[in-house]
Design a protein around this nucleic acid. Structure first.
Lengths: 145, 145
DNA sequence: GACAGAGACTTGACTCGTTCCAGAAACGGT
DNA sequence: ACCGTTTCTGGAACGAGTCAAGTCTCTGTC
């Protein structure tokens, strides 16, 4: 997804507005941004923007597939602009740092359950939980709790 | 996990109290219960219980590994008492119905990412998203939107 | 270039799930 | 039975996200 926000928006049939472009710019810069971070960064570019506008923009982009929303347990929702492939995520239990991993097997749904229990499945979401290298260091060294 | 709640609690080093036993009973009956459902069901057994007590009990049980907490995106947290194995979940996008699936590969972590990016991983959480058989019927038949 | 209507944005109140706090009650080892 | 610890109660508070109503701004058309 190297197209510019303007082109991507138009291609998706969405109107091109300043907030939308700004949101997509932010996502290009921060690959796993919370709604809150997006709001702050957009405000840094445009001045005051309502949080509602940010949620609307994000929802619209998620709807048309420009943005993907992930919600690791215990963390606020994260938004990312990498949507074409079916990649997965590594999440740090300590600090929440989230990193992409390419899907081991290739295309979606990359996994199939032993038994689908009658469900019509369209996606296998994989989250790898662990501790990022930075937090491993922090927790290994003696520190006051 | 077929041991009785009392035995399980004691084995885990937790005190045996009526609310705790009741919570575990409820989880035995409802394999994927929300905190709210647990509260209602416990109240049906014991009379008034504070929601704080329920959250405390659940948190204590999660801590000692008697209960597992899962948080599918968009749904309130679900609690389940099946903790020994490393099974995964099928979640219906339409109604939220959650069903267990045995892990395809066996033991934990059942998957390894193509690249661990320096993380020390301990769990691969897999959620299969789709539509349960009941919702497939509902959506296939003509219905007013 | 101006216009109109659909779509997008603002403001502010509100819901929901969850957590925090202080004090009261219950448990269980001695 | 007693006492210290742990657990439970009730209520307030929090953060993320949603709803509703009104205003503004794109964009296609004249």
């Amino acid at each position: 997804m190297v197209t510019s926000p303007e082109v991507a928006l138009r291609a998706a049939g969405l109107r091109v507005t300043k907030p939308r472009v700004a949101v997509l710019d932010v996502l290009a810069e921060y690959p796993h941004a919370t709604a809150d971070l997006v709001t702050n960064q957009v405000e840094a570019k445009l001045g005051r923007v309502s949080k509602q506008a940010v949620y609307d923009v994000l929802a619209a982009c998620v709807d048309v597939g420009l943005v993907r929303r992930i919600e690791p347990a215990g963390l606020p929702a994260l938004f990312e602009n990498r949507t074409g492939d079916n990649h997965h995520h590594l999440v740090c239990r300590a600090c929440g740092l989230t990193t992409d991993v390419d899907c081991a097997t290739g295309e979606r749904p990359c996994l199939t359950p032993s038994d689908d229990a009658g469900y019509l499945l369209d996606e296998a979401e994989v989250v790898f939980w662990g501790m990022c290298s930075e937090c491993q260091l922090k927790w290994r060294s003696p520190r006051p709790m």
